[in-house]
């Protein structure tokens, strides 16, 4: 484990402290989980003061059939940086858990415009509604789709 990644993890702990609900430090990735009320402030700080200037991917996980079952969805933003040369190979992930019954999440499009299409995909594949998103509509699914979002664990594929 490189010293850079430990320093990064220590920085994050020192700055956000109570806001971080869980933290995972691996070889090339740091993942922190924050609450929905904190995520905008955390994201803004990461962009302005720590140089994480773009979003690589936005994904979600249905935790209802994970090993530790939980009736929630986890939205994960994978951040990348161009301005910090020491963090080029690293990946910082911030995540947030939302209720599965009515998943609502704050959109981070204002902070990183590049997550617009990723959030649209998470919207159609998991049914997560991103508030304040400029153009929240279907991206990949066909227009006549009338089933539940297909990447939820409850979804039954039609098969043959």
């Amino acid at each position: 484990m490189s010293t850079t990644i430990e320093a990064l993890a220590d920085d994050l702990s020192a700055k956000f402290g109570q806001a971080i609900k869980s933290k995972i430090v691996d070889k090339k990735i740091v993942k922190i989980e924050v609450g929905r009320e904190d995520i905008t402030a955390v994201a803004k700080y990461l962009r302005d003061n720590m140089g994480w200037d773009h979003v690589k991917a936005v994904t979600a996980i249905d935790l209802s059939r994970a090993t530790k079952k939980e009736d929630r969805l986890e939205v994960i933003y994978h951040l990348g940086t161009y301005s910090r040369a020491d963090c080029w190979g690293l990946d910082l992930a911030i995540s947030c858990r939302v209720e599965k019954a009515s998943p609502r999440m704050t959109s981070l499009t204002d902070i990183w415009p590049s997550c617009e299409f990723h959030e649209r995909e998470a919207f159609e594949m998991f049914g997560i509604v991103f508030e304040n998103h400029p153009n929240l509509k279907r991206l990949l699914l066909p227009d006549y789709w009338s089933d539940i979002p297909p990447l939820l664990k409850d979804y039954q594929p039609p098969g043959r």
């Binding site: 089933d147 297909p150 979804y155 594929p157 039609p158 098969g159 043959r160």
Partner: peptide
């Protein structure tokens, strides 16, 4: 027959 995506895909025609 759908091949790799047989039976558990939400968007692939099964043959």
């Amino acid at each position: 027959s759908g091949g790799l995506y047989a039976k558990d895909s939400y968007n692939v025609i099964q043959g």
